[in-house]
Design a protein around this nucleic acid. Structure first.
Length: 423
RNA sequence: GGAGAGAUGGCAGAGUGGUCGAAUGCACUGGUCUUGAAAACCAGCAAGGAUGCAAGUCCUUCCAGGGUUCGAAUCCCUGUCUCUCCGCCA
């Protein structure tokens, strides 16, 4: 949600960011709407003032009682109309504002699609195979690691049932990554609700615009979360944080649910794109001046995981055409998937600046000066487990299809070092 | 699912028609004291908005939405949520 005062102060900056995102500039329209709203508001407030003072006269001397009553009644009628008019204008304004994406960082490059993203860190070592590497589905089939027949019967397409050593690997990865985040990078571990109110999704930016990507239940209109970023970021909604408590860092494993409405036909098989997947998430609340550094710290945390797993990766800076709605600057981690002969995204680390905190009404207070302002929020996946499973299966496969499990994980797999059983 | 109670500032908790944006305590912020800290003491301390160079002035907000009234935190209706007890249940 944008601050109309900020737009008024620097409409060009605002419009330029929209243009960079291939959207139409609209500061003029917004400022105009706000001026109209202010006209109604000012008129409303001065009427309320006279109404209040008339009522107060009652406590002193009730002489022209009836006259005052009449006057107040007249004012109330006028107020009713004004209220409607003012409300209409502010709603109109807010509806537009809620559907506008965050202002981009100067660092975010211009671009039309993912092809214009910039590789900022390329992994030189892409695993070379002496045999032709299989994709994760073939490997999974060989060792009975994924049961699609049952998943289809139980839930339909884009669901899977992990079995045997793959299920163990899933659990191991989850624990390994949570340990990394909490022990080495000071994130506070949480277990969060996976059903949330619409207002929470509006706070992080999924609503109102991306309703079709979400699953809505008929229990109190709650939605399934598409990422635990939603639950974590909303932890401080409608409240004021003492700035001394910053930075605040949370991590959580959760299941994530996505309708994948616009992705029909894309990655239809396998763990790449499912309606439900596990993910460990990072969320940071930061002092605005520190958020750029915090983003680097978050990236370091994610990078640490991938390096320890010894997976070939690269980091790309998303261009203005590929970056998400709430973000101002995003770096994706992509891992080389030999079975698909390409890099695939496994993590996305974003600085959402004050975009989400405004929507969630999360504020900071400097108690020395009394100043109240908005923190920056950052989020990052660390990481999407389904895709990480693919990466491990495909990168560490042997000629006989067996898969070496990264050494760092063996303490989480009860000593299992290799997937080679066919149960 | 049955019965009852409730929703007030960061938290706890008073307030039942005007003098209430709201007592008190804790927390928080500043200060005194102290080598430093703690304790003690003194002081300050809700948010959002309009207007103004500023000081300030004004408006709104005591879960949400309606209603009664000249006037509502306070009375009435509806919704939501929470708690307690019983039942059921990971």
């Amino acid at each position: 949600m944008h601050d109309i005062k900020f737009i008024k102060k620097d409409p060009k900056h605002f419009d330029d960011s929209l243009i960079k995102r291939n959207l139409k500039p609209c500061s003029k329209q917004l400022i105009n709407l706000h001026e109209q709203y202010l006209n109604y508001l000012n008129e409303k407030q001065s009427l309320q003032e006279t109404k209040n003072s008339l009522s107060k006269q009652f406590s002193n001397k009730p002489e022209n009682k009836e006259e005052i009553k009449e006057n107040v009644t007249k004012i109330k009628k006028k107020l009713e109309d004004l209220n409607l008019l003012a409300e209409k204008k502010i709603n109109e304004l807010n509806n537009i504002l809620l559907n506008l994406p965050n202002i981009l960082s100067d660092e975010t490059p211009f671009g039309k699609s993912e092809n214009d993203n910039i590789i900022v860190k390329g992994h030189e070592k892409i695993n070379e195979f002496k045999f032709s590497p299989k994709n994760h589905l073939e490997i999974a089939e060989k060792f009975n690691l994924i049961d699609y027949d049952s998943a289809i019967k139980i839930s339909g397409s884009r669901f899977s049932i992990l079995k045997n050593d793959l299920a163990i690997l899933h659990r191991a990865l989850t624990n390994f990554m949570l340990d990394n985040n909490t022990r080495e990078y000071n994130y506070k571990e949480c277990v969060v609700p996976e059903l949330v109110k619409p207002s929470s999704l509006e706070g992080t930016g999924q609503l109102p615009k991306f309703n079709d990507d979400l699953f809505k239940t008929n229990f109190n209109n709650l939605y399934l979360i598409p990422t635990s970023e939603v639950s974590l970021a909303n932890l401080h909604r409608e409240s004021i944080i003492n700035r001394k408590e910053l930075p605040i860092k949370y991590t959580a494993f959760s299941n994530c649910f996505r309708a994948e409405a616009g992705a029909s036909g894309k990655d239809t098989k396998g763990l790449m794109r499912e309606h439900q997947f596990g993910k460990v998430e990072l969320v940071t609340f930061s002092e605005p001046s520190e958020s750029r550094n915090e983003l680097d710290r978050m990236i370091a945390c994610v990078e640490n995981i991938i390096k320890k797993l010894d997976l070939p990766f690269r980091i790309v800076k998303l261009c203005s055409g590929d970056i998400g709605f709430s973000s101002s600057l995003t770096f994706d981690f992509e891992i080389w998937m030999p079975g698909q002969n390409r890099f695939r995204e496994v993590s996305s680390c974003s600085n959402c600046t004050d975009f989400q905190s405004r929507r969630m009404k999360t504020r900071l207070k400097n108690f020395e000066t009394g100043e109240i302002y908005f923190p920056h929020t950052l989020n990052g996946s660390s990481l999407a487990i389904g895709r990480l499973l693919i990466a491990i299966l495909e990168n560490f496969q042997q000629e006989d299809c067996s898969v070496e499990i990264p050494t760092i994980l063996t303490k989480y797999t009860n000593g299992l070092t290799k997937i080679s059983r066919n149960d």
